[in-house]
Write a protein that binds this DNA or RNA. Structure first.
Lengths: 220, 220
DNA sequence: AATCGCGTGTCAACCGGTTGACAGGTGTCC
DNA sequence: GGACACCTGTCAACCGGTTGACACGCGATT
């Protein structure tokens, strides 16, 4: 285990793979697997073994040369790197269909992101119970975020309100935002945003579908 | 307008940007804007103008040198390239919370992907009306796909059923799948899959949040 | 008509990420 | 104990994507 580099030097592409490593490793752990080689793990994730080792290399490596990785050590190590060693409470802002679906999505809690507050401006939604939690009025946003120590917010409000709500979230101390609104958010450099654009995904797929149907694809 | 290259030569990264171009251009069109330069468009999307021109270059360019792009011509051209000149009917398989949320998500239809079938295996959900459409039993999957000419399916079933359902979809003639299940799907090469992994997104964000909170980020 | 400002199409340099290769460590089997 | 199979950490070559630079076209203005 050598020197651990600064996070900023870890390439974006590697960051996006870390959660997949963790997911698969947890699965293996649940199955009672103790050791796993880079080749086994990489093949099950459909990537090259050299890439996996290269990724781990950014954090100094997790094994001694000659010995496979130990699942029991790798899982907590990755959890620490990703920042989910302990649960990260999150808020969901916007309790429309998508917000409700996410609030109901139990997997979030399992992955270490318990929902600790659901908010909406619509009084007809306020008070609605989702998984034992009430939808709260936007008035309570700041207090709940402060009391629960929430750092990450999931934004599922209509596009036209996204920026205003974002400004409030940033002021309230939110450091990371998962944005489902089809808009680009302006935030200070000290806040991380991740855009989950549903429509972009299906359109990119549509392009490939067209390409397949027209036999215009190099692959086949 | 020079030679149009084969789709297979268009880089993945460019494909993912096309929908964003279209989105923004439609917005401009709605605002009555007629001309737009690569710089204006690029800046509003927070990318480099040279990249935008480079992307368009794959399709032969959309303007004469010296003249800005004409929104009115660009929109249909991009729609054609992406494959949404005419509506692409889609099916939603799995009417759990997420499936219902997507079925209710009006934006899909606006973007050219009308939902023409919602399916679930759970008899308690079958018959439920969503936006004027019934949730159908899985038995009807093949007939509806055939009758409506559906080519794209959105998969929102639990992970353990994802592969089985996928096999059925492929057999039924589906060519593109947007996969929300946290599993990798095995499909023949003639089928395109796009994974929308919610948990991966929030975890990648968590990494950056940790990086910001610990002052371990190069950016600031 | 000549000039000027602005714009696209195009290309080459550059950069980050991926991939293959290998040196060296570890445990096992004979 | 020696040979062997297997494994990781590490590095260098490679590749695709991004970016900056520029030649040239167009329209307005003088």
């Amino acid at each position: 285990m050598r020197k651990i580099r600064r996070h900023s030097e870890v390439p974006e592409a590697t960051i996006h793979r870390l959660p997949r490593y963790l997911e698969k490793l947890k699965l293996l752990q649940a199955m009672g697997v103790e050791d796993v080689s880079s080749r086994q793990l990489a093949e099950s994730l459909d990537i090259k073994a050299s890439q996996l080792r290269h990724d781990f290399h950014y954090f100094g490596g997790f094994s001694r040369p000659g010995r496979p990785y130990q699942v029991g050590k790798l899982v907590p190590a990755l959890e620490k790197i990703i920042g989910v060693s302990e649960p990260q409470p999150v808020a969901i802002v916007g309790a429309g269909h998508l917000g409700q679906a996410l609030a109901n999505y139990g997997n979030l809690e399992v992955q270490g992101f318990p929902v600790r507050g659901v908010f909406d401006a619509n009084p007809r939604l306020v008070g609605l119970e989702i998984r034992g939690q009430p939808v709260r009025d936007m008035d309570e946003l700041e207090t709940v975020i402060a009391n629960e120590g929430i750092r990450i917010a999931i934004l599922t409000v209509p596009a036209q309100h996204a920026q205003a709500v974002t400004d409030r979230l940033v002021k309230a101390g939110i450091v990371g935002i998962v944005n489902f609104a089809p808009t680009d958010l302006k935030v200070p450099g000290t806040v991380a945003v991740r855009n989950e654009r549903l429509a972009v995904g299906i359109m990119a797929l549509s392009f490939k579908v067209k390409c397949i149907l027209e036999g215009d694809c190099g692959a086949e």
